[in-house]
Design a binder for these strands. Structure first.
Length: 447
RNA sequence: UCCACCGUAGCUCAAUUGGCAGAGCAACCGGCUGUUAACCGGUUGGUUCCUGGUUCGAGUCCAGGCGGUGGAGCCA
């Protein structure tokens, strides 16, 4: 019986007759010989169809194959430096071929395509090498995230997607009809995580979150995935140590397991090699000073090389500010102690400085922006109630959340890491819509 | 919500001052034993986003609309 193999394992079968099932990516021919670039999901290789070997009938069938035709190939594996593929350098001398389907003319060609066309054809675009590599990095990142948390006693407790009230009260939510009652798609699982830590100590949720913001930038999706760890008995300083260990593990694991994918994506991994603890930490105050100095010096910021705008203390950073700050360091940068006014209501104020809170954002290098937002949470019930009243949030909706602080309240902290932003950074892609199989962007719900 | 740009063959684009609707690729037919986006010869392929206007004549100019892309704000 001829063994069925996956193309990623091809090097283990040199000299053997094997079978491969897959799709034809590209066919080139030269008289009596045809080169079939075939992929099977695990990788791609070149199958060589030679007329004297196959006979006239089979060879005629090979010549009828169109791009994306599905087929079963039987042949002998051999090493050949000229053979392209993932991994390259191996090819099959085809001795038999069974056509499953001749594909209709395939819309995506090796030529360039515009982004509108590619997004309209996302269901087909996913088959391309580049999208394959990005998706492989994504699944590796997800696995690394779960491994690191699971191995350190974090319990995975998922939080509801259908929720009755705003998580943070600021950003726009998708409203749905919950049997006649208004409900919202979750923009965070954090508040529920805070309930869960009192039962389980260290938890995380990992799922899709939804933001109905009218954001049309390369850093925004309407639906994106976020992992949110939350830790009891944890203050800000300890949180930052957890974050830098966590992010470093994810980055180094991806570098190790996805070397071929990153090479295919032409990612310069030099900067990623640096991503090891400790990460630099600066306060919001220091960040504002750096920005003032940069504005004085006339600094411009990629990608458009526009002059950096000045900032007034108390304002949140714009994307160019984050890009500038992160560019001053060789690894991800913590910016801590943001003004209370530009952060969510539940963050613990800094003792003696109530105008700033015990928050920390992690800014990725190379302009990829904020990949983590985290903070120490307010642990005093009365202080929390006052914060909710001050922001004029509906008190009743937060009744249970406040109550958590009445039964054995402890200092606790947590953060949320945006999956697509992390994958974008690691793969070096310019727009995070390619970091998810079916992106939901403003004005695009299909396919 | 605001600002900018774009819409011509299946795809990527061109079309001079407003004057015959074009090319490359894809598809189809033929040729070639080492192709890497092969190459060579041939064939096919159009609601120029929509509606209205100006004009002898509109892909081109004007008005309105629709769709898309990029960015700002906000955020991960």
């Amino acid at each position: 019986m001829t063994p069925l193999i996956r193309i990623c394992d091809v090097k283990e079968y040199i000299g053997e007759t094997v079978q491969v099932r897959g799709w034809l990516q590209r066919r080139t021919g030269k008289g009596k010989i045809n080169f079939l670039r075939v992929r099977d999901g695990s990788g791609s290789f070149q199958a060589v169809a030679f007329r004297p070997t196959l006979g006239d009938d089979l060879f005629a069938q090979v010549k009828s194959l169109t791009t994306e035709s599905s087929l079963l190939l039987t042949g002998v594996i051999k090493a050949d430096e000229r053979a392209p593929g993932i991994p390259g350098g191996y090819e099959m001398d085809v001795c038999d071929i069974e056509i499953v389907q001749i594909a209709e003319p395939y819309p995506i060609t090796p030529k360039e395509h515009g982004i509108e066309f590619l997004l309209d054809n996302r269901h087909l675009w996913l088959r391309s090498n580049r999208q394959w590599a990005i998706a492989r990095v994504r699944t590796t990142v997800i696995r690394a995230i779960r491994d690191w948390l699971d191995d350190r006693g974090f319990m995975n407790v998922d939080t509801p997607i259908l929720t009755p009230a705003a998580g943070e009260g600021t950003t726009t939510l998708f409203e749905i009809d919950y049997h006649g009652v208004p409900a919202f798609l979750a923009q965070t699982g954090q508040l529920y995580n805070e309930a869960n830590i009192f039962a389980f100590g260290k938890v995380y949720c990992f799922g899709p979150t939804f933001r109905a913001e009218k954001s049309k930038t390369r850093r925004h999706l309407q639906e994106f995935w976020m992992v949110e760890p939350e830790i009891a008995f944890c203050k800000l300083e300890e949180l930052l140590q957890i974050e830098e260990q966590f992010v470093s593990y994810v980055v180094q694991t991806t570098l190790q397991k996805c070397a071929a994918e990153l090479q295919l994506l032409e990612r310069d991994t030099g900067l990623l090699q640096n991503v090891k603890p400790p990460f630099p930490r600066i306060s919001y105050d220091e960040a504002v000073e750096k920005i003032h100095a940069a504005v004085q010096a006339g600094v411009t910021v990629p990608p458009n090389d526009e002059a950096l705008a000045d900032i007034v203390w108390g304002e949140d950073f714009g994307a160019p500010h984050e890009t500038y700050l992160a560019s001053q360091f060789d690894r991800p940068l913590f910016v801590t102690h943001y003004p209370t006014v530009c952060k969510a209501f539940y963050m613990e104020p800094e003792p003696g400085r109530p105008e700033v809170c015990r928050s920390a954002d992690l800014l990725a290098p190379e302009g990829y922006g904020e990949i983590i937002g985290g903070s120490e949470r307010m642990s005093d019930p009365d202080m929390l109630l006052a914060a909710i009243e001050k922001q004029k949030l509906p008190q009743e909706a937060y009744h249970w959340y406040i109550e958590l602080r009445r039964y054995g309240s402890v200092p606790h902290s947590g953060f949320g890491l945006g999956l697509e932003r992390t994958v974008s950074w690691l793969t070096g892609i310019s727009h995070l819509r390619e970091a998810i199989a079916f992106p939901r962007t403003l004005g695009r719900l299909t396919p």
